[in-house]
Design a protein around this nucleic acid. Structure first.
Lengths: 173, 173
DNA sequence: TGATAATTGTTATGGACCATATCAAATATC
DNA sequence: GATATTTGATATGGTCCATAACAATTATCA
């Protein structure tokens, strides 16, 4: 496995390696054989994940939300009043790394830290009005431009089966 | 989306956030609701990918091969005589980043760079005898300990369907 | 109650991975 | 034969991830 995300204009497009063949005399460079690689779970998983994140970023360009930021907003909306540790650990984010992330979201007035009155060590997280509005718009963009693409590609039934299998791997592998 | 790999002993296990409940008086911390997050393609994809890579590393601990290194060995074996640019770009690795990777594999005598006689700029890549032997052992470990786990979890048919859908996403999304 | 331990948010820091610019050597192009 | 391109390589910066450590606060319990 491996595969890097690689931006738009990059000449490292993984798929078409071995192009740029010489039209001249010598035996031209044929495309490489992926072989067993295309059957390797990790390889294809990683490649798919990079493509999906890439598409997500494009869809959310107008809102400037990364997948991670989107997940934070979603989780805070669904679980208002939780502290940083709870939100971060649920998302698999280490607390130290969550600080800068929140600094960013807070500086954009999307969410706010509130000192808890019960436990003055912790910061309760809530979405601001702007945060709720942005998240609502983000959800629509994701649904119509991002997730909808999966239905076009796989069909509704396969899409649900895929999500289910991935969830099973994530939880039981 | 988000989710970090998180080693074994970490206290950041994403699943069981909201444990450590206080047995004392106050209303204890209930588990957080993932909500729409568990249906987000990117979120579940990333989580599954991390789990799979984690398991891959465990299975290959005796050979000390990362997923990326394994993919390089596989590709070089399948396509002997190709140069660094071809192998790297096929895997989506940028050439500058491929140098250190090859330095590593070469220092372990798993593969070798050979100056091409046709084009003295390029380095032809080949597996050493040790490289072939290690790769053979790696394949067996992956097949029996890693990929086999997918069959146990999903069944043969679902496993193939999953790989197919992921490949489709990787290529057409 | 008061000493000690644990928790929370935070900072600092280092590692792994990824991306770009740039270079010398070699080759291609015209 | 002058110029452009390609190849492997170096240097460098960015992002993400992980650990240690700290101050403030709270829990524990002798």
């Amino acid at each position: 496995m491996t595969v890097s995300r690689t931006a738009e204009k990059s000449s490292e497009k993984p798929a078409d390696a071995g192009k740029g063949r010489k039209d001249a005399g010598e035996l031209q460079t044929e495309a490489l054989q992926l072989g067993e690689l295309s059957e390797q779970l990790g390889y294809v998983l990683k490649r798919a994940q990079l493509k999906v994140f890439e598409n997500f970023l494009r869809c959310m360009a107008s809102l400037q939300l990364t997948p991670a930021q989107f997940s934070v907003l979603l989780l805070v909306e669904k679980n208002p009043g939780r502290n940083q540790t709870e939100i971060a650990s649920t998302l698999g984010i280490l607390r130290p790394n969550f600080v800068a992330m929140l600094d960013n979201l807070e500086s954009r007035d999307l969410c706010a830290r509130i000192r808890s009155t019960n436990d003055r060590r912790s910061h309760i997280l809530v979405l601001t009005d702007k945060g709720k509005a942005v998240l609502a718009r983000a959800k629509k963009l994701v649904a119509t431009k991002h997730e909808a693409r999966l239905n076009d590609l796989l069909g509704q039934a396969n899409r649900e089966a895929l999500i289910g299998m991935l969830a099973k791997i994530a939880n039981e592998f």
